[in-house]
């Protein structure tokens, strides 16, 4: 069915595609540190040669009952259920920031357990439902 020339072109194109796919994969592999938008507390815990005076992002869930508000600042704990980091922050808090929900803090590490944030972003999950359904779910769980 394939003509001789068409076959040649098909093989050439397949090779080219494979080659570029491998190249892109290698580029991504080497740039992984830059592609990830944030580090989890465990990643920071396990990381060698950590830079403390560079702006980085830490992400995870806000630990239940960990938010404590003072006049202008708020303190809370980011957890990934294996490791935790204490975050202190003063400034605007996004609406969706709440306990048990995802959060990303941008700022500097003071040490491996303490983080000073300059900016807070809320990260939400892929679940969408009306409030009545949530209430019904909560009821059935009790």
């Amino acid at each position: 069915m394939l003509g001789k020339n068409a076959k040649k072109r098909a093989i050439l194109l397949t090779l080219l595609l494979l080659l570029s796919a491998v190249t892109i994969f290698l580029i991504f592999k080497s740039l992984e540190e830059n592609i990830v938008y944030f580090f989890t507390p465990s990643e920071i815990y396990n990381k060698q040669n950590i830079s403390f005076n560079k702006t980085i992002r830490v992400g995870g869930l806000v630990k239940e009952n960990s938010i404590s508000k003072e006049q202008n600042s708020v303190k809370f704990i980011i957890t990934d259920f294996k490791n935790e980091i204490i975050v202190s922050y003063s400034g605007l808090i996004p609406n969706l920031f709440s306990e048990g929900k995802g959060v990303i803090a941008e700022g500097e590490l003071k040490d491996k357990k303490y983080f000073i944030a300059e900016k807070i972003l809320a990260k939400h999950d892929e679940n969408y439902m009306p409030p009545e359904v949530t209430k019904a779910l909560e009821k059935s769980n009790k």
Binding site: E32, I35, V36, Y37, F38, F39, T40, G59, I104, L121, K123, H124, D125, E126, N127, Y128, M129, P130, V133
Partner: peptide
């Protein structure tokens, strides 16, 4: 593949959608 700010897909071919049917 990576940690992103964007949430994962709600509709996938392999599992039930995580969006309520009313949405």
């Amino acid at each position: 593949w990576w940690n992103t700010l964007h949430q994962p897909s709600s509709i996938t071919l392999t599992s039930a959608p995580t969006i309520h049917y009313s949405m």
